[in-house]
Amino acid sequence: MSEIFTIALIFSTIRTATPLLLAALGGLYSERAGVINIALEGLMLAGAFTAAAVTHYAGSPWVGLVAGIGAGVAVAAIHAVACIRFNADQVVSGTAINILMTGVPAMLSGALFLSSGSTPQIPKDNLIPWTPVVLALLLVFVTWYVLYRTPFGLRLRAVGENPEAADAAGVNVNRIRYSGVLLSGALAAIGGAYLSIGQSSLFTRNMTSGRGFIALAALILGKWRPVQTMLACLLFGLTEAISIQMQGVFKPYGEEIPVQFIIVVPYVLTIIVLAGFIGLSRAPRALGVPYQKER
């Protein structure tokens, strides 16, 4: 067992946890404000594609990163308008965005780069392999501070728990919700950008491969709290790191354990936690409920 838990594995865990953590923190802002965000997957894809494409043209990953954030915010705005302005079912809207963002980057890369869904390779000097990792860890504490120590955080939580009361206290419910969803777009996009211009050196079709959903699971496992969410992301990162390191073969006791059994651990754990077997994971009370101001 000992040769598995090496320094390399720890670093690999942190690196695989980073995109999850960024997306999960994004989801936290949205869901704490009461808007379900299963669009994280699509938001990550928007960030990943835009960051890689713009880095290719601009030659600077920082320009790419900023463009990626812009794309994430723009796509999140669609989700926000649908959910907040038009009372769309938040899960349905999120699903639509996920489908949209598998299609749009593929079409654009087909037109721009004449490829079937990937961007050209970016030179190694133009990658940002560590900044997002540090940023993600910093953002955990920033998020904690914002959420529990600032008026904005108080309003965000109030809007997610009891929008009527927040409204009565003079908070503009919808404005706070817009901020939450747009922030989620920005953070998830950084997570996506890290995949395309941090971990690897190009955007490939559907490169998030479910990470947005895993981030959502981590958010639930972390009970919608920043530090616990980080721990959940690290756990999910660990299982991914192990399955990468073992290349499908995991032999802790001489007996081969199929990689699939390691992959499912976080998912099973999420179901168990959600069912309330390991502490209660309670969603913000107004999560998924559109707010209608009384007239």
Partner: peptide, 8 residues
Amino acid sequence: ILFVACEA
């Protein structure tokens, strides 16, 4: 999907 969801 988006349009149908935004029936309002």
